[in-house]
Simulated assay, not measured.
Amino acid sequence: MSELSLFQLILIGLIFIWSGFVRSGLGFGGAVLSLPFLLMVDNRPLVYLPIIAVHLLVFASLTVWQNNRQLRKKTKPAPLTGSGTHDSGQAGSEDSSHNGTIAWGYLKYALMVMIIPKLVGVFGLIVLPNTLMSAIIFTIVGLYSLTYIFNKPFKSNSRWLDIVFLVLGAYISGTSLIGAPLVIAVFANHIAKHQLRDTLFALWLILVGIKLAAFIYAGIDLQLIQHLWLLPCAAIGHVLGLRAHQRMLAAETPVFFRVLGTTLFIISCVGLYQGISQGLG
């Protein structure tokens, strides 16, 4: 990134603050809601995807650890001072086992469905040129934006459609880390709302770990030097997102997502136009 101007670097820092806010606030969207903006600043997906992947590993694991630590404190058995207290502590322990922050059973099932298309997607990312990869990303984000504009999120109502969404989401995640909307359409039907964010984080941790391993194997630069200033930017957004998370869970925000969807749609159209123009030129 040394060849970028100061203004471009400032924009990238602000986008990573936004990325951290969205990721910790919603549990998804750190890539899909920031990558189009990054590509408008500098059209090189393989520069930003490793950075986003490392950020997801750091902040997702931190969030899951903090949430489980808080849950253990809340459900810690009380001292044995009498039979009533003992019963209360035992009940808390049982709640902890049934109401953890991660739905491990469904997570294992989803991974079995997603692992092969994920690997295929990662291979595609490594071999495809930047211009084509950017066009694919803008197209996918443009389609996602329409679901936000018209308040018609992806929905699955059958086991087979679940599998289709998981396979497509895994492949898109492998190519560009933006498969979350498809995956959430499935997970939201099978996981309690209070477990959804952390279960998604656990899934992203595994899938992103696979992606980073492929990057290292292929000799792709992980942009480690850029983390010295972009990690603090993402950390600012992460803290803000954690504070806003409970409000986001309780609130219905169709207007927010409609505005966001319109912005993403415009950005995607402009990005596609620029890509086509450069290709023709």
Rank of each mutant, 00 (worst) to 15 (best):
T85W: 13
R197P: 07
G241Q: 02
F215K: 01
R197Y: 01
G169V: 11
L56P: 00
A214K: 00
N67R: 13
Q195T: 07
V113F: 05
D221T: 11
A192I: 08
G261Y: 04
K118V: 12
S96D: 11
I184V: 15
L33R: 00
S145M: 09
G281W: 06
D162Y: 10
L168Y: 05
G124R: 03
G261A: 03
T175I: 15
I178N: 10
G27E: 07
Q223Y: 01
L166V: 14
G179S: 02
G105V: 13
I276N: 04
F37Q: 02
F215M: 08
L230W: 06
L62V: 14
G29D: 02
I102C: 06
L272S: 04
D87F: 11
L128W: 07
L182G: 11
G169K: 06
L11Y: 02
I140H: 04
L182W: 07
Q66I: 13
I149Y: 01
F187V: 11
Q70P: 00
L203R: 07
L207Y: 06
P79E: 08
L212I: 15
E252I: 06
T81I: 13
G209T: 10
Q90V: 12
T175E: 04
F257Y: 15
L49F: 02
L231T: 15
V41H: 02
L132N: 02
L39A: 01
S24I: 11
T139V: 10
L111D: 05
A235Y: 14
P36S: 02
L26K: 00
A180Q: 01
L264S: 07
L212T: 10
T253W: 00
L146E: 01
W65H: 09
I184Y: 04
I191R: 06
S268F: 04
I149P: 03
H227G: 12
K155H: 11
I149L: 06
L146N: 08
L177R: 00
S176N: 02
L212H: 05
G271W: 01
S277A: 14
L56C: 07
P117A: 01
M114K: 02
S277F: 09
G121K: 07
Q226L: 14
T175G: 09
S61T: 14
L224F: 13
L39Y: 03
